[in-house]
Design a protein around this nucleic acid. Structure first.
Lengths: 141, 141
DNA sequence: CCGCATCCCTGCCGATACTG
DNA sequence: CAGTATCGGCAGGGATGCGG
């Protein structure tokens, strides 16, 4: 079931006559992909997801865990993830307010392909940095 | 930036003991991961990579294939990919000048995990959009 | 055909300060 | 504790024009 093949946008025309069942409108599909990629490429989102993988966490707990993130960005990131249904927000109206964030099943399912990408990054970081050094040297000399 | 590192290849069904994962303080690894994620999340890079997967392409060929990309952005994107060793640039000094871009082995290896992410996006785009709609409605109501 | 340079506008992100 | 509001810097990226 992994045939894959991205919705490549090489369709020159525009409103192609829709008659294939396999095609769900590839521009919307393409947007969806780009959308997810943006989220993954987001500076903080995946950091949050990875932390949440260990279990639910409170706001400041998360804040301390990531540490370099600002309060503003943590809020924004969590809102974004919540909006996309990747994390859930649970409010406990106690005296000091308590809010727990947790990965939804959807969020957990996203973790896997992201992890794969993380593994790739780890495995090839040397190659990438080397390529950069070479490129920069050749460019500058 | 000294929190959890990615590497562990998923722990399926692990009921997290909720303890803090041992921190190796590997910030260079973390940076590398973030770095790759940024590239993937880049608006155009993966579009280019996916197109190049079919084989080498010339500049304007690529430009037409992606279509909505501006010349400036295509140049910048290609430079970035080239710098990271993901694509190769081959100049044929003819009249008119001919420049071919192609995926390097490294670039091709990146394509796989990215494809996985793309598949995830395709499989879950309905869920995500639904979540958004629900969120937006609940927020505004 | 390929690619760089410039202008400019937009949105992201950090720091700080303030409410419930 | 959790969250919002505001300001300022800066990078992303579109449009256009010039040069090899």
């Amino acid at each position: 079931m992994q045939e894959g093949t991205f919705p490549s946008v090489s369709s020159p025309g525009v409103t192609a006559p829709a008659d294939k069942a396999a095609d769900h409108g590839d521009h919307s599909a393409c947007r969806a992909v780009n959308d997810v990629l943006s989220r993954v490429g987001d500076k903080w989102s995946m950091r949050v997801v990875m932390n949440l993988d260990r279990g639910p966490m409170r706001f400041n707990e998360l804040r301390r865990a990531i540490d370099s993130i600002s309060q503003r960005m943590l809020t924004r990131t969590l809102r974004g993830l919540e909006r996309d249904g990747l994390v859930s927000r649970t409010v406990t109206p106690s005296v000091p307010p308590r809010v727990d964030y947790a990965l939804t099943p959807l969020g957990q399912s996203l973790r896997e392909p992201v992890q794969a990408l993380g593994d790739w990054a780890m495995a090839n970081r040397a190659a990438v940095e080397d390529a950069r050094t070479t490129f920069d040297a050749g460019c500058d000399e």
